[in-house]
Design a protein around this nucleic acid. Structure first.
Length: 258
DNA sequence: CTCTGTATGGGCGTGCCTCA
DNA sequence: TGAGGCACGCCCATACAGAG
């Protein structure tokens, strides 16, 4: 009984097609030895590697990354696996959110899914009664525009209070904008890209809490776990469009080596 | 600015032919 | 029966150019 097997046997043992095995060899992933007649000969040990390669491919990991993985030492390999697991978990979460959304989709449902891109945001702190932050917005907007800073979006993030509310109001600006000449900025944040559930809000601003409750209820009903606080998102020339956003998942690219 | 078409690349699968 | 080589096709994603 030889410890080596032909491509046919190896294919049967691993469940990987012969053409895929030849392809893996051409991509330097598997290295069968050759018999006198030029046949590929695979060893028992290569079954584990072959199964690993096809499993990683099924998980969507590119050939190049697998090539890197196979060349690395044990420490780096462990790190790469950790990163892949992290990325796959995020993808899995993202898919489960999309799945729940689609499964519960109704034509009249106003809630929609939104992939929010990364954005640089300048935050200020403001205090006012519920739904009465308009003046704060206008004032801060004027201040920024005086400095020739163009504004893409407006945001409001609740901090504390009930009758008198403390909140952050923020403005999305271009990445390359340098903020100088404003003394009372609360913070400058690069908001991470995230998947959000969003609700267009058109009722009177004094009833904005109802919108929060509606979005919160939607999340609870659909088993979605918030990944951050609800944010009011204002758009348009005069911020006339308002959506409430609840982040439900962080978005990231497939990570290889850290 | 939006739409449409085209190109390119990755990752195979399939088929055909020839040779041993 | 199994090898090699080659061509072609498929599906999907992304990029880019050109037209309207």
């Amino acid at each position: 009984m030889s410890e080596f097997m032909t491509i046919q046997t190896f294919s049967k043992r691993t469940g990987i097609s012969k053409s895929a095995l030849r392809y893996y060899e051409s991509e330097n992933l598997l290295h069968p030895i050759r018999s006198k007649n030029g046949y590929r000969l695979y060893s028992e040990d290569q079954i584990t590697t072959a199964k690993l390669i096809s499993s990683l491919r099924l998980a969507g990991i590119p050939i190049k990354d697998i090539q890197m993985y196979l060349k690395e030492n044990e420490t780096v390999r462990q790190q790469m696996i950790k990163n892949w697991i992290k990325t796959l978990k995020q993808k899995h979460h993202l898919l489960s959110v999309s799945l729940r959304y689609l499964e519960s989709y109704q034509k009249n449902d106003q809630v929609y899914l939104l992939e929010k891109n990364a954005e640089k945001i300048v935050w200020f702190v403001a205090e006012s009664n519920p739904g009465k932050f308009g003046n704060h917005f206008r004032q801060r907007k004027r201040e920024l525009e005086r400095l020739n800073i163009s504004i893409n979006n407006g945001y409001l993030r609740y901090l504390s209070g009930k009758e008198s509310i403390k909140a952050q109001i923020g403005f999305g600006v271009s990445d390359d904008v340098e903020i100088e000449g404003l003394s009372d900025i609360d913070s400058i944040e690069i908001m991470s890209p995230c998947l959000c559930i969003a609700l267009p809000y058109t009722s009177p601003m004094t009833e904005i809490q109802k919108g929060y409750a509606q979005l919160m209820n939607y999340a609870i009903e659909h088993g979605l776990i918030p990944a951050g606080p609800i944010i009011e998102w204002y758009r348009g020339e005069h911020f006339e469009d308002l959506d409430l956003l609840m982040p439900v998942a962080r978005i990231s690219k497939m990570e290889g080596r850290s």
